[in-house]
Computed example of a mutant assay.
Amino acid sequence: MATSMSMVSKLVASIVLLLCWSTAYAQLRPNFYRKTCPRAISIVEEVIKETIANEPRMGASLLRLHFHDCFVNGCDGSVLLDDTTTFKGEKSAGPNFNSARGFDVIDKIKARIERVCSGVVSCADILAIAARASVVRLGGPSWAVRLGRRDSRTASLSGANNNLPGPGSSLSSLISAFSAQGLTTKDMVALSGAHTIGQARCLFFRSRIYNETNIDKAFAASMQANCPFTSGSGDNNLSPLDQITPNGFDNVYYQSLTTKKGLFHSDQELFNGGLITDSQVRTYSTDQAAFFTDFAAAMVNMGNIKPLIGRKGQIRRNCRRIN
């Protein structure tokens, strides 16, 4: 009886949480800055165009930055806060330290927007717009970014360490991590397609290419050439997550999974003989339009994670520190 009551309580709590998120989401809208800062979106897109023309990899970094922001206390710009002598934020967390990039790009965007409409556009919204602009610039789909988020006054080091799924995650832990954010397994598989762009350090895929069996042998050997077996040797050597079209947002990532060429353990877990995600991976590997549609929808869902609205939080004038 006690167990049943506990399950009911958890179900009720989940429903209440989803209702709260839905209410907040309803107040976000694509035209939020139409009157207060009509050039906001175009300014973001201009900087992204300039940035990716100079360094295509930065598109993946900015998309990842939005993801890492939303998975820790919601899409609130907390990942952008610098550490101080009395405060350690999310930049110091394992998944971000010496890994998260693009902060200077967000600074550049914020500075340009502040010159046009000061104290109006949140850093959290800039991250959301920059993520879409990056995907589009690299050939991926577009979607209606709902805006109106505000910025947090704090960050969570423990949240970044505990909430962000790592490259060694199992399928069950991936599902749990996304579910905890109100995202479905379908969302998870679609969002994982972000790994069709970007690069990874040897440190994060060494174990897979030397120790795992669910991997194409020729692929493993080619990766070993740039990632020595000895820990500490070549840890920072980079390899594209998608070996074929590393700077193109497409469905090649899923094609690689079907041939056991996923770079991360967590990638290959999506296609590992399980009934839960294998069929979705197969679909995306042959139907890029389906992947694009589902990725766009999943990005909208992710952008809905616990936004600060109304009078909560603030509009930071500098994304690295609170006002």
Results as ranks from 00 to 15, higher is better:
212 E>F: 12
285 S>H: 02
279 S>H: 13
252 V>F: 01
278 D>Y: 07
310 G>Q: 11
249 F>R: 02
287 D>H: 13
281 V>T: 05
261 K>H: 02
228 P>Q: 02
188 M>G: 04
306 K>R: 13
263 L>Q: 07
219 F>V: 09
301 N>P: 00
240 P>T: 07
257 L>A: 06
265 H>D: 07
283 T>C: 02
198 G>T: 06
198 G>P: 11
269 E>C: 02
274 G>W: 06
208 R>Y: 05
202 C>D: 03
200 A>V: 15
266 S>Q: 09
229 F>L: 13
202 C>T: 05
243 Q>T: 14
248 G>I: 14
298 A>V: 09
280 Q>N: 00
283 T>H: 03
279 S>R: 07
302 M>T: 07
263 L>H: 01
252 V>E: 13
235 D>E: 13
246 P>H: 03
285 S>Q: 07
258 T>R: 11
288 Q>F: 01
285 S>F: 06
202 C>A: 11
208 R>C: 05
226 N>M: 04
191 L>K: 08
221 A>H: 04
263 L>D: 01
204 F>P: 00
309 I>N: 01
210 Y>T: 08
266 S>R: 10
204 F>S: 13
216 D>T: 08
208 R>F: 04
213 T>N: 14
265 H>R: 15
226 N>F: 06
284 Y>F: 15
310 G>A: 10
248 G>S: 13
220 A>G: 07
236 N>G: 12
256 S>M: 14
246 P>M: 07
308 L>Q: 04
244 I>S: 06
282 R>I: 12
189 V>P: 00
270 L>S: 05
209 I>K: 07
283 T>L: 15
273 G>W: 10
237 N>D: 09
288 Q>M: 06
290 A>Y: 05
257 L>F: 10
215 I>T: 11
243 Q>Y: 02
199 Q>F: 14
307 P>E: 08
205 F>Y: 15
219 F>E: 03
295 F>E: 03
242 D>K: 08
293 T>S: 13
287 D>W: 07
252 V>W: 01
188 M>K: 03
244 I>T: 14
213 T>M: 03
259 T>G: 00
262 G>I: 08
306 K>N: 13
292 F>I: 09
253 Y>F: 15
250 D>S: 14
239 S>R: 15
260 K>H: 13
258 T>K: 10
266 S>G: 06
300 V>K: 11
196 T>Y: 03
225 A>T: 12
284 Y>W: 12
312 K>I: 01
235 D>V: 10
290 A>T: 14
201 R>A: 10
